[in-house]
Amino acid sequence: MSDANDIDPAAAPAPVDPDARHAVKMAKKKAARDKIMATKSGEKGLIIVHTGAGKGKSSSGFGMILRCIAHEMPSAVVQFIKGAWDTGERRLIEGHFQHLCQFHAMGEGFTWETQDRARDIEMARKGWDKAKELILNPEIRLVLLDEINIALRYDYLDAGEVVGFLRDEKPPLTHVVLTGRNAKEELIEAADLVTEMTLIKHPFRSGIKAQAGVEF
């Protein structure tokens, strides 16, 4: 029986350098990614839906508006529900970026606040008319329809009409973002990109109220 001390050091496997192994792994991943990206060359105006019970739907939409502003791409916002709110996004856009982003606050609050279905329908209709005008404007690259899914959920607007307009009349390179929980199935089907925000924890359940800089 040979002793461990008799093993030829040259025959033992060389220690693996973790940095070198990582570099090889990332090089393979980059090559695969580059191959995939080489097949993606088209551009189109996207229909984007942010829905779900979790926080962040409107915030994500406004993040896209800020990207457009940074690229000096004209954009617009139509708020269907929270139009009566004094939000940070509204202050920022109206105070500093009106030349790049139109802001139209059409809603008057959530339906349990207004308690007037006829009035809510009227305001939603006006918001949709403004939205169509903005979407058809060839100079505007992205339109955010904030909380339109709420208006669709309560049938303040006809989902078939909205989907039909986006499908048949939206300019080819115009992006439209639609936010709000409970997105209609036909809207999800028509969209190019759909993200569902999942609620895991929320401070409201622990007695914490909505706070400036976080919720509005």
Score class of each variant (00 low, 15 high):
42 G>F: 10
1 M>N: 07
52 G>V: 07
58 S>E: 04
163 V>G: 01
73 M>E: 12
76 A>P: 09
49 V>P: 02
122 E>Q: 12
4 A>D: 07
53 A>V: 05
116 D>E: 02
26 M>D: 06
148 I>K: 05
160 G>Q: 06
35 K>N: 06
170 K>V: 09
53 A>Q: 09
19 D>L: 12
95 G>V: 14
166 L>F: 01
55 K>L: 04
168 D>K: 11
143 V>Q: 00
92 L>V: 05
138 P>G: 03
181 R>W: 01
39 T>M: 13
151 A>P: 06
55 K>S: 06
17 D>H: 10
115 Q>H: 10
99 H>A: 11
65 I>L: 15
211 Q>A: 12
164 G>L: 05
33 R>D: 07
93 I>L: 15
193 L>S: 10
146 D>G: 01
88 G>L: 04
125 R>M: 08
58 S>W: 00
154 Y>V: 04
98 Q>C: 11
65 I>V: 04
9 P>E: 13
46 L>H: 12
148 I>H: 04
24 V>L: 05
190 A>F: 02
118 A>M: 12
2 S>F: 08
126 K>I: 06
144 L>E: 00
100 L>C: 09
26 M>E: 11
159 A>W: 07
32 A>D: 10
66 L>F: 15
188 I>S: 10
68 C>A: 15
149 N>Q: 04
103 F>D: 13
42 G>C: 07
33 R>K: 15
42 G>H: 09
123 M>E: 12
115 Q>G: 08
158 D>M: 07
14 A>V: 05
16 V>P: 06
115 Q>P: 09
89 E>A: 08
82 K>H: 00
191 A>K: 01
33 R>W: 01
11 A>E: 02
90 R>K: 14
45 G>S: 13
49 V>A: 01
109 G>K: 04
31 A>T: 13
120 D>R: 11
81 I>V: 15
93 I>T: 09
191 A>S: 05
213 G>R: 00
120 D>F: 11
93 I>V: 15
174 T>D: 02
36 I>G: 03
148 I>W: 00
181 R>H: 05
167 R>D: 08
190 A>E: 07
11 A>P: 05
174 T>K: 02
58 S>A: 06
192 D>N: 14
121 I>F: 03
176 V>S: 01
129 D>C: 08
80 F>M: 03
121 I>W: 02
137 N>P: 02
161 E>Q: 14
154 Y>P: 03
112 W>G: 06
51 T>P: 08
135 I>M: 01
90 R>E: 15
